[in-house]
């Protein structure tokens, strides 16, 4: 069960028309004030067991909200949305994937201790018959540029044990 606040506040002659989602983790049993992610109007709500008991009641302008929605969007305007963590609009979500998690393969040639690994593509062919692979990665032969870079790293002392 998840309720919403569909904000209809008049903003410059047009209704705000923003859906503010009340995620059950935060709002299941909850009483307080919350802002609209788009126009900032503050609403008072009281939820019991996932159901709206009171509200949403608009608060006078200038009221400081207790919290913000985690996510909001404007369904009538296609894909306009307010993802979590927008200062002053939505609540930050602490576990936001870090910047390095892009959802696309991250190509690397060296581990964090500076030794080579086959973390990039495409890899040169090395199989023989029927998909057969040898037991050794002949880096010098297959990927000479990585091997050369590795030698440089060794010389510069960038290759560590831990």
């Amino acid at each position: 069960m998840c309720d919403i606040i569909w904000c209809k506040k008049d903003v410059e002659g047009k209704p705000c028309d923003t859906v503010n989602y009340l995620d059950p983790y935060c709002f299941w049993n909850w009483k307080g004030t919350i802002n609209c992610a788009n126009c900032g109007t503050v609403y008072a709500i009281h939820m019991i067991q996932g159901h709206m008991y009171k509200g949403p009641d608009e608060q006078p302008a200038g009221t400081k909200p207790d919290t913000s929605p985690l996510y909001a969007d404007k369904p009538l305007e296609g894909y306009i949305n307010f993802p979590s963590g927008m200062e002053g609009r939505t609540r930050p979500f602490q576990c936001l994937p870090r910047h390095i998690y892009l959802g696309v393969p991250d190509m690397v040639k060296f581990s964090i201790r500076g030794r080579p690994l086959r973390g990039w593509r495409p890899q040169p062919k090395s199989a023989g018959i029927a998909g057969q692979f040898p037991f050794n990665w002949e880096m010098k032969k297959l990927s000479p540029e990585v091997w050369a870079e590795y030698q440089e790293k060794i010389a510069k002392g960038e290759v560590k044990d831990w």
Binding site: H46, I48, Q49, G50, H51, M52, Y53, K54
Partner: peptide, 17 residues
């Protein structure tokens, strides 16, 4: 939706449950 008018929080919860 459950009508909350005139109900105390407890009475409202009783309706939910």
């Amino acid at each position: 939706m459950i009508e909350a008018k005139g109900l105390t929080p407890r009475q409202f919860l009783d309706k939910v449950l």
